[in-house]
Simulated assay, not measured.
Amino acid sequence: MKAIRTIRKPIRTAIAVLAVAAVPAGAVAIPAIAGGTATASTTAASTATSCSTKWGSLPKASSPLGRGTLTGIRTGRHACFDRIVFDVSGKQSGSHVRYVSNVYQDGSGFRVPLRGGAKLEIIAHVPDYNDAGRSTYRPANRKELTNVAGYRTFRQVAYAGSFEGQTTIGLGVRARLPFRVFTVAGPGSGSRIVVDVAHTW
C-alpha cells in the first residue's frame, strides 16, 4: 500500500500540469476603459469564446450632435480587438462609422492614403476647434495619429479634417472585419467615442 500512495501523488501532479497547459495563452479578459490612459493592457484569464462577436461590418451611426470639442485620439490593443478612442471635452456625442473604398479630406476632397486591406471612415460629431476657432486637437503627424505598429487589426490612423462641426478620421485595417461603436461618459464633464475592430470574424 505504501508503494501505491507514492505513485498516486505524481499522477495527480501531472494531471494538474496538463489542465493548466490546456488554457489558451491568448485567452484574457478585457479591462474597462481607463479615464485618461490608453487601454492596451489585459488582465485575468477567461475562456477563448470571449472573442466571439456579433457586431457585423455594416455602417453604424448615432445622432446626437456634439456639444464639446475633440481633444485627443488614442489607440490600444486587446485580446480580441484593436480599439481607437476619441476624447471629447463635452457631453456624449454621435458618430458615423462605415467601410468605404476611400476616405477623403473634409472640404478639399483629396483622397487620404491608408494602409491595409480595408478602410473605415470615422466621423465624430464634434469639431477639433473651439468657438474662437482655436485648435483643441493638434496632432504632430496627420498621417500617423498614433503608432499602431504590431497591432493585429489596425494598420494606420490618419487625419481627414474637421469641417462644419465634425471631424473625420481614416482608419486602415487589415481586412473588412466586424466593428462596434459606443460612447462613454467621463472623465469629469467629458466623454469618449470608442470604436473596436475585431481581430477575426
Rank of each mutant, 00 (worst) to 15 (best):
F179Q: 02
K91A: 06
T13P: 01
G36Q: 12
E164Q: 15
C51M: 07
T146V: 12
A32R: 15
V23Q: 09
E121N: 13
D131I: 12
I169E: 03
G94W: 02
I84Y: 00
F182P: 02
R8P: 03
R111E: 15
S108M: 11
W55F: 11
K119V: 08
D131C: 11
S46Q: 13
S93V: 07
G190K: 01
T49D: 15
Q166N: 14
T75Y: 01
L18Y: 05
Y129E: 11
D131W: 03
A34W: 05
A3Q: 14
D87W: 01
G186M: 08
T13N: 12
V195E: 00
L120E: 00
A61V: 14
A48S: 15
P24S: 03
F154E: 03
A22S: 13
A124H: 04
I15Q: 06
R5C: 07
G188I: 00
Q156N: 08
G66P: 03
A158H: 06
F182H: 10
L171N: 03
T200Q: 15
L171F: 00
P113R: 02
P113G: 09
N141T: 11
A124W: 00
K60M: 06
T53L: 06
G107W: 10
T37Y: 02
I122F: 10
I4G: 01
G56M: 09
G26W: 05
A19K: 02
G165M: 09
G116S: 12
I73Y: 02
V97D: 00
A27V: 09
R138E: 08
A3F: 10
V28G: 03
R174W: 02
A198I: 08
H78W: 01
S46P: 07
G66E: 01
P127R: 08
I122W: 12
V17T: 04
L177Y: 04
P31K: 01
R138Y: 11
K54H: 14
N130V: 14
G172A: 09
T42G: 01
P31M: 04
A3R: 15
T69G: 01
S162G: 11
I169H: 05
E144M: 13
F154G: 00
G66I: 01
R83S: 04
I193G: 03
V173F: 03
A14I: 09
S63A: 14
Y104T: 15
P187N: 11
N102E: 15
D106P: 05
T39W: 00
H96L: 13
V103C: 11
N147C: 07
A40L: 06
A34K: 15
A34T: 14
A185I: 02
F182I: 04
I123N: 07
G150N: 01
A124M: 10
V194S: 06
G170W: 02
V88R: 00
A40Y: 00
D196H: 04
P24R: 04
